[in-house]
């Protein structure tokens, strides 16, 4: 029952995060790529709350990503340049919008849900393209400056601050996701995915839980979008596009759903492969990327994150040796 186990954080899990934190020293010329990976990973985590936990599917998740991005950009354009509050505003706007549409989305299932989310995403994209005064239309918004993060770290050309900032926000999002997955609320969401009828019999208000789950995921997506707007100092219609919704779904398929590291591994592999292949062969890289992705899905159907989980399964032995007992064995 790996899907139901509240997999707690193992001490060894600090290692990949330390590696990520050391990136500016290991590979300083890859921090720009690093911050975009962190943002995509956060976005994938938020979608995983829907797909991997609540069992909702979405082809319009970029709507919330884009709303967060535009909210943060508009705030900065109108003189409020403090980044952290900008992030909060991004999450808030996305969450409010999600609260509005969530009842509609959770009413339907499967294909119909795909259609509803797709439709909502396209409508928002079209609306943003019309509202030139607010969104800048096709030109997007740019030319805003942000104050230093926490008043200490100004954004630099090399992207070191942007990377540290994005990584810190991703880590916070990751901890939040972990706590949420292990909470009664997380259990309820997964229960609703596996057997809604039984959850109803247990007295869970399924519709309400799903709406809450949808809003929480949208807030995370909004924060990821705000992060992108702040670190690239621009935002355009593309952040709301169907393309972005599809991309994050690909990332999640690649990394695997329902696990903590799915989004992270997926984003890392997808962006690194994309960057490497497109520099190597600017004209034909999409073909190579497609082939690599098909191969991944065929060889490891559970996604690359599944591999990480299997490694994790071997870890308890190490705990006993070090004496830190983790409850993982009991539940699984």
């Amino acid at each position: 029952m790996t899907t139901l186990g509240p997999r707690r954080v193992h001490p060894a899990e600090i290692l990949p995060w330390l590696a990520l934190a050391a990136l500016p020293w290991i590979a300083p010329d890859h921090v720009l790529l690093g911050s975009q990976i962190a943002i995509l990973a956060l976005f994938a985590l938020s979608l995983d709350l829907l797909v991997g936990h609540a069992g909702l599917v979405s082809l319009g998740h970029a709507a919330f990503f884009g709303l967060g991005a535009y909210a943060a950009a508009l705030l900065a354009l109108h003189g409020w340049s403090e980044p952290l509050t900008g992030l909060a505003a991004g999450g808030l706007v996305a969450g409010l919008a999600a609260a509005l549409v969530a009842p509609l989305v959770v009413r339907v299932h499967g294909l119909a849900q795909l259609m509803v989310t797709l439709g909502l995403g396209l409508m928002l994209h079209e609306a943003a393209s019309r509202a030139r005064v607010l969104t800048g239309g096709d030109d997007g918004l740019s030319g805003f400056d942000l104050s230093p993060v926490l008043g200490l770290f100004p954004f630099d050309l090399y992207g070191f601050t942007a990377y540290g900032y994005a990584l810190a926000v991703l880590a916070a999002g990751f901890l939040f996701y972990t706590r949420l997955a292990a909470s009664p609320f997380g259990y309820a969401l997964r229960g609703l995915k596996q057997n809604p009828a039984r959850m109803a019999a247990l007295g869970t208000d399924g519709r309400r839980r799903l709406i809450q789950g949808f809003v929480v995921a949208a807030v995370l997506a909004g924060i990821a979008g705000a992060l992108l707007a702040q670190t690239t100092q621009s935002v355009a219609l593309e952040s709301l596009s169907f393309h972005r919704s599809a991309e994050v779904l690909i990332v999640l398929c690649l990394g695997g759903t329902g696990g903590r590291y799915g989004g992270l591994v997926g984003a890392l592999v997808y962006m690194a492969a994309r960057d490497w292949l497109s520099a190597l062969s600017p004209h034909y890289w999409t073909g190579w990327l497609g082939a690599a992705m098909m191969l991944t899905v065929l060889v490891v159907p559970g996604g690359l994150g599944g591999v990480a989980r299997r490694l994790h399964g071997r870890l308890p032995r190490l705990h006993r040796a070090t004496g830190t007992r983790v409850a993982a064995g009991g539940e699984s």
Partner: peptide, 23 residues
């Protein structure tokens, strides 16, 4: 040094510009 944005993608373009300049 060629960088492919695959259409309108301002976030990619910004990163490419920074990387082309710094790296």
């Amino acid at each position: 040094i060629k960088r492919d944005t695959a259409g309108p993608a301002p976030d990619l373009a910004t990163r490419f510009a920074r990387e082309l300049i710094t790296r």
